[in-house]
Write a protein that binds this DNA or RNA. Structure first.
Lengths: 155, 155
DNA sequence: TATCCATATTAGAACTATTATAAACTTAGA
DNA sequence: TCTAAGTTTATAATAGTTCTAATATGGATA
C-alpha cells in the first residue's frame, strides 16, 4: 500500500484484500457487501473513496464495460474483458492489447486503453445447446439464469 | 428507417437526423436539447426510447466510454474511440479493430467489441505546450477549458 | 375515407450509482 | 504528546436512466 503512495488504513487494506481474494470484477456495491461482513462500520462512501484512490495510484483498474455500475479489477495491467449478456459474468481475456498506453493514435496521446467485448460466454453457449437438445428429447430443465452468479470469475 | 424495421415516426426521424448532422457523439441529454429546438414537445423519455430502438436495430451504436453518460455514434460499424480527458471531446479513430463481432475468444462468442482510449488529444497537447512556452516569456492566457466544447467532433 | 389495434409518445415519478458535505476520527511526523 | 494533514463516516444531493399509465399516432383493413 505504501508502494502506491497511500496511507495504509484498515479500510483500504480490507478493500484491497477483498479484491485480491475475489477476481470476479465486483462492483462497488459488491465490495461494500463483501467487506462489511468482517467490518460492519464500513461506510459505502469509503468504498468509493478507497476504490478511487487505488485506481488513481495504479493499484487496481476500473472497468466501465457495463452501464449500470463500474467494476473493479485487482489486476491493473491492461487486458481485454468479456461480459456475458446471459449470466452477467465478466471474464479476463488473455490477449495483448493492440493499442497500449504511451502510444500515439492520430496524434492523440493514449494513457489508458480498454477493450470491452460483449456476447455469450462459453458456459452459457453450452447450456443453451444442452437445453435445445433436451427439449427435442422431451427433457425439461429450468432455464438459464439471467442474473449474475456470485461465483463469477475468470476462466 | 424502414430498413431498420422501425416505424418511422417524426421523433425517430428527428433524432436520427440530429445524429447524422452532429458527429460529436452526443449524450442523450445533448440529443434532447438539440432536437427540442425544432421540436418543443419532445419528451426526454422519447429520446431514450428512440436511441435504444435505433441501437437495437443496428442503426447507431452506443458508447459507454464515459461513466457519466452514454454517448451515441451515427456510425454503427465497430471502430475505436478516443476520449480526451482535458477537453472532453470524443474522437473516432480510423483503425480496424483486432477483435470483431463473430470472433471466438477463449470460447466466448463475441457479439460487440468496443475499443476505448483515454488520454490527451492532439489539440490539447498543442495548447498545453503553447501555454508552457508563453509562461516562460511572460505571456499570459486563460487556461485550457476543462469543460466539454460544444463544437466537439472528430478530426 | 373511417375504423381499429398495436405501437409510440408524453409527463412525471421513481430508481440507482455516484458524488458532495461537514463533522469526527486516524495517521504520522515534530 | 501535540498537531496538521488526510481519512472515514453518515447523510444529503445530484444526475442519468428507467418505469408507469394515460394519450396519441401509424398504418393496415374494410
Amino acid at each position: 500500500m505504501r508502494k502506491l503512495g497511500l496511507v495504509p488504513t484498515i479500510q483500504r487494506l480490507a478493500v484491497l484484500e477483498y479484491l485480491e481474494n475475489n477476481h470476479t470484477h465486483p462492483t462497488a456495491e459488491e465490495v461494500y457487501q463483501g467487506v462489511r461482513d468482517q467490518f460492519p462500520s464500513l461506510a459505502k462512501a469509503t468504498v468509493y473513496n478507497v476504490l478511487d484512490a487505488l485506481k488513481k495510484a495504479g493499484g487496481i483498474q476500473e472497468l466501465t464495460i457495463a452501464r449500470e455500475a463500474a467494476r473493479y479489477d485487482y489486476n491493473p495491467s491492461p487486458h481485454p474483458h468479456f461480459l456475458c449478456r446471459v449470466c452477467g459474468n465478466l471474464y479476463d481475456v488473455d490477449l495483448p492489447c493492440s493499442i497500449r498506453p504511451g502510444d500515439e493514435i492520430c496524434g492523440h496521446l493514449v494513457e489508458v486503453a480498454q477493450v470491452y467485448l460483449h456476447g455469450i460466454c462459453v458456459q452459457c453457449q453450452k447450456q443453451n445447446s444442452q437445453n435445445k437438445n433436451e427439449s427435442k428429447t422431451g427433457v425439461r430443465r429450468s432455464s438459464v439464469s439471467t442474473k449474475r452468479r456470485d461465483d463469477a470469475g475468470a476462466p
